[in-house]
Amino acid sequence: MSESKPGWKSIPIAGILLEPGSAMKYKTGSWRAFRPVIDEEKCIGCFLCWIYCPDGAVIREEKSVKINYDYCKGCGICANECPAKAITMVEEKR
């Protein structure tokens, strides 16, 4: 796989990334085997899932939260941390 990538003579020095925010292009959502689904009824809006999500895939809204499935990698941390048991991990069907 690495043969198809640019060589040392053509990449920027020092491992620098010249394009800001280029991580946005990397959609970790494709890794997901289980998808977190929020039960709005149960959600108490404590935003713990928003704090714990390692990929910043929880979007904070006024009183509740939403998941950005482009980046949610399905790790289940949010479901584990939710004190109201409002998040269920559902098997991904592609």
């Binding site: 796989m1 990538k5 640019p6 020092a14 491992g15 620098i16 990334l17 800001p20």
Partner: peptide, 22 residues
């Protein structure tokens, strides 16, 4: 903005070191 010190796995670390040698 640029990103400095980002992780470089097996696919780019070696190239970066080779530049250093150069």
């Amino acid at each position: 903005p640029i990103t400095v010190g980002a992780i470089c796995f097996t696919d780019f670390y070696f190239e970066t070191k080779r530049q250093h040698v150069d």
